[in-house]
Design a protein around this nucleic acid. Sequence first.
DNA 1: GGCGAAATTATTGGCGCCAATTGTGTCGCA
DNA 2: TGCGACACAATTGGCGCCAATAATTTCGCC
Lengths: 230, 230
Amino acid sequence: MTSERKRKNTSTRRAVLANEIAQAIRLRAFRPGEWLRQIDLEERFQATRFDVRSALDELAVRKTIEHVPNRGYRVAEVDRKTYEEILATRIILERAAADGIVAHIDDDAIARLEALAARFSQAVLTGSRTEQSEINRAFHQFMYSFCGNAVLEEMIWGLRDRGRGSQITVWSSHELLLKSDREHYEMMAALKARDGQRLAALIATHIIKGAPIGPTPIEPARPAAVTSPG
Amino acid sequence: MTSERKRKNTSTRRAVLANEIAQAIRLRAFRPGEWLRQIDLEERFQATRFDVRSALDELAVRKTIEHVPNRGYRVAEVDRKTYEEILATRIILERAAADGIVAHIDDDAIARLEALAARFSQAVLTGSRTEQSEINRAFHQFMYSFCGNAVLEEMIWGLRDRGRGSQITVWSSHELLLKSDREHYEMMAALKARDGQRLAALIATHIIKGAPIGPTPIEPARPAAVTSPG
DNA sequence: GGCGAAATTATTGGCGCCAATTGTGTCGCA
DNA sequence: TGCGACACAATTGGCGCCAATAATTTCGCC
């Protein structure tokens, strides 16, 4: 308890490293299907082999990557069917978060959200794809943080991460990117009006339209306004 | 290539062991908050220390158990708030599965489900608590297996496992147990009628009533204002 | 030159050892 | 007798080594 820094134990280091690797995958530093060689990761993240393996194990459990015995770990490739299932489940969960969000968010938070939306608008014009992606993530992460249900929130982010392994390009056209941008503002309008129904509907279309798979095989998640009691 | 005796690799053994431990936790062989000593687990499951640790790590990632640095692993204790969040999220997911189930299930499957329901009825009368629990699990697992969304299914089971760490007793009275039993048959009636709405409603009450936490934070199902694709 | 098999290299994976840390019992002192 | 500190025991945890497996290259044969 002196001023010296405490030595981090493995579980912490592993979690940190796992998140770093996960972020690298999000940023497409490793593409779906690509093998993650332990030796490379050791160097890149300045970690011991043991930590690398632990982190990879964790990501494998989280389904961010896939483990093939005696071959190693590779970024999970999500097939179309699974991708559609992920989207469908995301819609179920993220729609369900809407009511909680409108119930708990305050004006200050909406203002901050507005700032993030503005940053996204800027990134649409001048930023790189990964920049757009990260800001978009920040926007939604902040919004969902008000849903009042930590478990729900956690599942949403788990699913979003899993979807990254897909070959399907989000924002396949600039037009869709602009649409996403506009929808952010529509969401905030719904927030200001405290209109959970409308927010839920916007979220659904936001998810569907962002990733244009052929027919939208989405089940009409009925509004189950269930977040934990405040 | 003579005898196809393949040596199991770690990832497999670990997964098996993790599931065995998870089941032991479900069956209350280890109670919430209880420490899982690695040496004991080695003996009990005839595994190496390494495998035990891997399995524990996996369960910690799955949030079935909790890891405390330099103290070890213990069965996760779910506080009331988290428990309510888990229930709320379960309702969201399991309700959403209803439409898929009625769409995909066939008469043969319903017959099998009926058999499981009957076994549960029997267990209510003569079985132990853990027996009831496992048969109930089998009933729901089989039913949800028809939801047509593997990702959704997986999340449902992940959540159900997490809820086990709670101190709240499911079926706190015999009356509730009987009610659960009856509801199984009501669910099958809804299935036969291919009534997704009704099934969803039944699922919601089934989850709420099974675990009587104080105020039920569940709002009644509102009419869906969402367009449903044929 | 093409093809297959054997040798070589690269990479992963099982596992045990011992240091670090925490829990417990005991002893001395007030 | 009560309390604190020290020593001892129990347990966890970091990590590196080397065997097992897969990938690659080389070599010999047709």
